[in-house]
Design a protein around this nucleic acid. Structure first.
Lengths: 338, 338
DNA sequence: GGAAACTAGGAAAACGATTGCCGTCACGGT
DNA sequence: ACCGTGACGGCAATCGTTTTCCTAGTTTCC
């Protein structure tokens, strides 16, 4: 298709409208004092030429590019996406565009992107990605604000927005207690993973507040279905009585669910089951559909973006901000009223 | 952290090095004729000030921004991500940065993004997303080249890169034939979905070339596990003999696998099973691990990006380009040699 | 020794848009 | 008739960089 029509410049518009460049600019931006008739004439000329002001030239003047960089540290995955989308959404609403940079867990690549973004004069940066622990700050002394989303910076002065995993775990336990379960087991991911430790500790703590404890020490393993199935085997072999399982991920929960069914235990009648992450693929495929804790990653991304915008406008929010989780109840913890 | 250090400009560098701006520019870009001593002095000054040339100002001159826009039409999902990443990778290698725009399936939003991208003077655009059918061109008469990736444009003159789904389906059937199966059933997604129809037709055709046909008409339903389980029920109730099932998605395949096991049929001994998409979550969780067809979406994204780069450099590749699929063999079709 | 040929680097004009400052015109009041 | 005052728009500087053209020096060669 007519690929070659050059971009119209404001001089083209001015010429067509029969005014000077300055006047054209004023007409289009509602500045200065111009006759209405003139404004209309200029606007019409702009429309006719399909004029779009060159953002680069404009930012040369304003010093702002209305652009931010988003760097994902690990390669983009299931967790980064919603964060990304939430941030993109919030930034788009603020008329900012987003540069996407996939760091691939490679520090060289990452530094390259930081330099590129700086040369593009982004107004700020968001760093996201999944890690087992807090990450080193992306760079010291950057001339623009940085917000870490989902992941957190090792420097406590940096602004990080992270899910309130402890709060989520507490909500899970509270829900199980609310539906009358007291003999709760916990199956979760690898112990070297910060999330697994935090969630397990919070669950234990919450139970303690009611004078209870887990029926067995937390079972640390992997985040997979396979591990969920294995863990059920361990639990059953141990002859521990339990009427609920709180799982560290929905995948684990699904494995647990399958294994329980195979062992003749009904969910939720005999064992109530709750997952973590609220990953639709798992919660829906599970039989019955799985109650879970939603990290609200999209909201987290949005919130991070809003903090970045605030920081760009001169009101930074240093420190670690915990974004609340949400309980999503489905049939794996509640016997349907029939 | 020291947020406030202004960006150094080339005049700062020039002043520090004791030369004029023009000379500084030449020194940094290896242009003009300068004494080596001068170049070194300028480079050193630049390093000292952490100078990064303002890309906006630079492109004002060159007319190129080394930037492309990526618009996802539906909200970003499991399929768009790898495409996105592949493209980002290829473009990054070409020193281009990517603007990410999430169209959310909203034409208004989409047009807004197109305008934004044009005002940012992107050198080109990639449109991606999942649809059941080809989509309308994003805009007529754009001043920059556009490549459609994964999705295809309804205008056959536009450059679209799409997976070779027919080829993939043929590979699936060929693999089943190769492992000695001839009584093949096909369970797939909704008939109104182009992919489902194309894959079913290609499978039928390929069987026909060997004088065979599906043991039953293709079972169209949904893309979910639930449908996979249901479909097995239908198949068994029909008393059709079959020794292999080709599924339209890995989720369906997993549902099929579970249902077959529940019905006492062994995979792969009694029934060989092959999925589509090669989605690790499903192929790995399946018992046994699932053979599948990989769309190579990352490669597709890369390829789309390369075509865009070529188009930007004046060599467009109009038309629809089919990107080959790959067969990934796992244990659901091959009895392990023990 | 003087003209031609280089060399190194400066000055200034782009690129596209914004904006502060001025000039000009028309009108009204005195 | 003269001055003051708005209203309207043009001019030119500015943002940061690249690039073209030019001017001093310095060689080189006859």
């Amino acid at each position: 298709m007519g690929k070659l029509e050059r971009h119209a410049t404001i001089s083209d518009v001015a010429a067509l409208a029969g005014v000077s460049v300055g006047t054209a600019s004023k007409a289009l931006n509602g500045r200065g004092s111009l006759r209405e008739e003139t404004r209309v004439r200029v606007r019409e000329a702009a429309r006719q030429l399909g004029f779009e002001a060159n953002a680069g030239a404009r930012s040369l003047h304003s010093g702002r590019t209305y652009t931010v960089g988003m760097i994902t540290t690990d390669t983009i995955g299931r967790f980064s996406i919603p964060v990304l989308m939430g941030a993109e959404d919030a930034l788009g609403a603020g008329e900012m565009s987003v540069f996407l940079c996939d760091g691939r867990d490679d520090p060289i690549r990452e530094q390259y992107y930081v330099r590129t973004l700086l040369s593009r004069r982004v107004d700020g940066m968001i760093v996201t990605g999944r890690r087992t622990e807090a990450r080193a700050p992306i760079s010291a002394n950057l001339p623009v604000p940085v917000v870490y989303a989902f992941i957190s910076s090792a420097d406590p002065q940096d602004c990080s927005v992270v899910p309130d995993e402890a709060g989520g775990a507490r909500k899970a336990v509270e829900h199980l207690l609310a539906v009358g379960r007291t003999r709760i087991a916990h199956i979760t991911g690898p112990e070297h993973h910060n999330s697994a430790r935090v969630r397990a500790a919070a669950a234990t703590e919450r139970l303690g507040e009611d004078g209870l404890s887990l029926v067995a020490p937390p079972l640390f393993g992997g985040w997979s279905e396979v591990w969920g199935r294995q863990a059920v085997g361990i639990l059953l072999a141990g002859r521990t009585e339990f009427d609920a399982v709180f799982c560290g991920s929905d995948q684990i929960a699904r494995g647990v669910c399958d294994a329980l069914r195979a062992a003749g235990r009904r969910v939720p009648q005999d064992v109530a089951l709750i997952g973590f992450d609220n990953w639709d693929v798992m919660t829906e495929a599970c039989q019955p559909p799985l109650t879970s804790i939603d990290l609200d990653l999209e909201g987290l991304g949005r919130s991070a973006a809003e903090m970045l915008l605030a920081a760009i406008n001169g009101s930074p929010s240093p420190g670690r901000h915990a974004h609340p989780c949400r309980l999503v109840v489905r049939e794996s913890t509640t016997v349907p009223l029939t």
